[in-house]
Design a protein around this nucleic acid. Structure first.
Lengths: 123, 123
DNA sequence: CTTCTGCTTAGAAGGACATCTAATCAGGGA
DNA sequence: TCCCTGATTAGATGTCCTTCTAAGCAGAAG
């Protein structure tokens, strides 16, 4: 594992949305990350992995935390991995997953807007 | 406009993923936000709105920035609005959109993990 | 009042996605 | 070697999503 064409740290930006508009190219790339986060199961999986002391979680523990089948969990983990948000390694019988902080940070920074809108408030 | 049941500032967390695991409830709520961001068109729309000096953009300008039809742009704006990421107001013939910074910040903070993983690096 | 423009809603078509069962692969132990 | 457990892959199914065209609504202007 730890296999294949992960974008490593793709070209897309690290500046907040408020600074300048995204190119179509960047938008396509970044949207993949957010799409991966856009499912409750994957978000919980990611949080279970990210919040783990030691940084690693065995798949078997993740599976136990849901009422979904193993293949379904495996599918969601793959989506997260292909989005570059997590990576994994097999050790003996078990497979361990961990987060890729740089990727999460990049997405975080994109959304990091000043707490109060420039002006134009109300509703 | 500015209508209906926006979650205003929903119960879901503001602490990073690394601090503690999400409840299923929070995950469902937060995933809605990320799902809305998980499309290249919506991400570009949001960036066009967020990066605008003055904080507001007319729909007509947004439509011009894409090769998609008006109804399609309108659909994506609705998704962003229902996710609580933007809001809008009609003024005369035109409709103006602006971002809701608090909502973006909440999502940003969730993904705001320390730059280096606790340990467990490599790949 | 009628008509024009800007925008949204309705409905349909095609593709993408989440989930399951069944089958396969990888390692460890008898 | 054979089997057992942990995990992924393959294939199927029902649902959701993106996009379009056509129709409707809101305000301004003649």
């Amino acid at each position: 594992m730890s296999r294949q064409e992960l974008p490593i740290l793709d070209a897309s930006c690290c500046t907040p949305l408020t600074s300048e508009a995204l190119t179509e190219e960047s938008a396509v790339d970044l949207a993949k990350g957010f799409k991966a986060l856009g499912d409750p199961v994957r978000l919980r999986l990611l949080s279970l992995i990210a919040s783990r002391k030691g940084g690693e979680v065995c798949v078997c523990e993740l599976t136990d935390a849901f009422t979904l089948t193993g293949p379904t969990i495996s599918h969601h983990l793959r989506v997260l991995r292909e989005a570059g948000l997590i990576d994994c390694q097999r050790r003996g019988t078990w497979v361990y997953y961990w987060i890729i902080p740089a990727k999460l940070s990049a997405l975080s920074q994109l959304l990091d807007v000043p707490a109060a809108s420039p002006d134009a408030v109300s509703a």
